[in-house]
Simulated scan of single mutants.
Amino acid sequence: MVDFLLSGDRAAFDRVIGDALAQDGALAATWRRRAKAYGIDSPFDLLTEVSRYDVTSVVGRITTPLLITDPDGEPFWPGASRELYDALTGPKHLVRFTEAEGAHLHCEPMGRALFEQRVFDRLDDRLAAADGAGSPNGSGRVTH
């Protein structure tokens, strides 16, 4: 399909994708949900636009502190979290999520509480460091 997309034949590509979506209601629903944010109807146009989302040429200029999550079993972009982390020259923090923790796969779907705890803990640490005051309990973490 990538070669077909790269061929530039918009009409043929949209027809093939349209036929596949017409045969699989679940796939069509997923496609619509994921495509909605872009406001682009043509599969060819959408994938062409998304292919432009590449930070490779500017990754060395990123200076904003980044938190990068890295789950085991990432099905869409395996290894991309580590690749981004390694390419960054500015402040960065890599947070691993493992299958043993039940927090693997894309977006850590079965480990959302662990994901949120780690992300908010990191945010607490960054905000405390930025204002120099720390959190209400003095630990760098807000507790309830």
Rank of each mutant, 00 (worst) to 15 (best):
A28F: 04
P75V: 04
R122C: 11
P136H: 13
R34V: 09
G138C: 04
A12N: 02
S81G: 12
R33H: 04
A100E: 11
T56C: 03
A11H: 05
A22K: 15
S42N: 08
M110Y: 04
L127W: 03
R118H: 15
F4Q: 09
E99D: 14
T64D: 03
Y53A: 08
L66V: 05
V119F: 06
M1N: 00
T30R: 01
L88I: 02
A22V: 03
L105V: 05
L5K: 02
W31S: 03
G138T: 02
S51C: 06
D86E: 14
D124W: 04
R82W: 01
T64W: 07
D3E: 07
A22H: 03
D54N: 10
D131C: 14
R96M: 12
L127K: 00
R34Y: 12
L66W: 08
P136C: 15
S135C: 09
G18P: 02
M110V: 08
A129L: 11
E83W: 06
R32K: 11
A28N: 07
R126M: 09
L66F: 10
G25R: 10
R15V: 03
R61M: 15
I40R: 01
P136T: 10
D45L: 11
T98A: 09
T63M: 12
L114F: 12
L127N: 06
G18R: 00
A28D: 09
R15H: 14
A20T: 04
L27W: 00
S42Q: 01
L123S: 11
A133R: 14
H104L: 01
F115V: 04
